[in-house]
Write a protein that binds this DNA or RNA. Sequence first.
RNA 1: GGUCCCGUAGCUCAACGGAUAGAGCAACUGCCUUCUAAGCAGUAGGUUACAGGUUCGAGCCCUGUCGGGAUCACCA
Length: 617
Amino acid sequence: MSNIISTLQNAVAQAVGQIYSEATDPAKVQINTTPPDFTGDYSVVVFPFVKIAKKAPDAAAAEIGDYLQKNVPEVKSFNVVKGFLNLEISDVYWQNFLQSVVTNPGFGRQPRNGRKVMVEYSSPNTNKPLHLGHIRNILLGWSCAQILEAVGCEVVKTQIVNDRGVAICKSMLSWEKWGDGKTPESAGIKPDHFVGDWYVLFEQKSKEAYEAWQQSDEAKRIFETNKKANQAEKEFFREFKNKWFNEHSALGAEVREMLLKWEAHEPATMALWNKMNNWVYEGFEQTYKDLGVSFDRLYHESDTYLLGKDIVEEGLAKGVFFKKDDGSVWVDLTDAGYDQKVVLRADGTSVYITQDLGTAQMRHKELGCERYVYVVADEQNYHFQVLFEILRRLGEPYAKGLHHLSYGLVELPTGRMKTREGTVVDADDLVAEVIRLAAEQASERGEIEGVSPQEKQENLRKVGMGALKFFIVKVHPKRKMIFNPEESVDLQGQTGPYIQYSYVRINGLMQRVEKENVDVSKAGAYTGIQTQEKELLVALHDFPNVIQKAAEEYDPSLIANFCYDLAKKYHRFWHDLSIFNADTAEAKAFRLQLSRSVGQVLKSGMELLGIEMPNRM
RNA sequence: GGUCCCGUAGCUCAACGGAUAGAGCAACUGCCUUCUAAGCAGUAGGUUACAGGUUCGAGCCCUGUCGGGAUCACCA
């Protein structure tokens, strides 16, 4: 069944061609939904045609409207207000449309189109558990993957684990020195948190050592000789911290030693590294499971950190890179508005971007995707611009399919999350908290009959997670978002549970239809569609377009807003009109079918956001 | 300082260049004898940071200004 929008676009273009003898691109014809205060379902913007028509907007609108009414069977009537042509679509069209939705559970989704896309949406470090920032990253990425699948792409969901380097060595060293052989099991702590605790302890010990060192004569001497004019001691030492760690700290020396042993594959170090990383993976797995996400392919930095050196050779041969006297290799991107950038150190070791170049190439060989989407916070915008620019210059065949899905940082009402100040919101804590609050509010509301304890718990989990996920995913990715923990667990208003509740209402109706064996075949005979019903139909009709747009823009918030809007309209419909007790059998059947469609679309839309629907609440 | 992003109701967020800028939260007021009130309806709240420009029409596009953030490492 064809889309009414494109039908109207074509017809308007045809009308303009016939009446004014001027060709118009149908795709450029603007069709909007008519605002509630006016009569009509869709409105044609006729201003672009007034020049062609050489008439006043109202006159042109009337002529086009007249043509549409005569030539397009779906157009029942029209009216003209201030140059806007409002069209009313026939009930027959809406009846057919409703029927087509009811009989098509996959409404809104496209068949497979043969396009393969990779979405990398998690890249955690293995020294600490996941936090709120990771949650936004993960939810955005997961949702985009679902949306891309819905428009027909084959999606490969990947994770790249930063499992090596200084950070994990700190945790390792800390556990080795002070861990006393404890394990997550013996300590009764979730394994990734266990590892994170040793990292925190390391930082603490290091901080204490640094403060003690600052009292030494050596420190005073360094301060006096190196301080900037008028620089306070406190500020100087804050800036000096990294240098101190690298050049003066005993712990720092030990960490570097451990890193070297790791690079040399020293067996004991490798064993320790494996042990601790496996603890972390075990913990991550639980968190991912709680968040309801999964990956098709895992990459480890320990496997990829040496990649990219061939590319450097290749780039040198192609003249994209150049070598400096000291032997370091650079790329000059100043003509593209960027800087010069090192791609290989003088000693031949890689830098961050070298590794990313290598990984991109390796992954393309392996996966052969058309597009590669990296879901990474916007602090790395520059890095990805540079990375993509280099790959373009190298003539990599997939270069034009690279996309950085950049999202704004998550802040608390009190400002940025800071590890040092302990304001980081832990992912597991947050998940537990939203479910606890859902349970609390449910119990205030009283028991629901006929629900088993397991089912009840399952529904509470869905409601709690629905609140959390919707709160995060409803915000446009690009915007930095303020995360207010209290608001995130709200269950009323513009929230996940509000949408779930409309679904639960529908679910209740459908169960009754089943039980009472209601005959809905008379739905098609219903006449006189009400505005509350029409609103729903128009909204439903837009679902495929919204998915399409969300896919094009990598923007799940469009789906979230769509679902909220549809749920809101359904609640109004529910309140204003009787469904089971409708005046006629036709109205009852129609409203039940309409409800079924709404439920189906809401479920399908929320699924694209990674949000599940409870049966009861 | 260069580059990029963001400034919309007290707060959190919407609005393919289209009609009178919309929701939720918070505040106040109504609506459960009737399909689940996690709902519905109403009141109040705005010079869309500011100044210009482009056009039939600008929150959206262009220029400038002011605020906020990110980034400009041989760190990752």
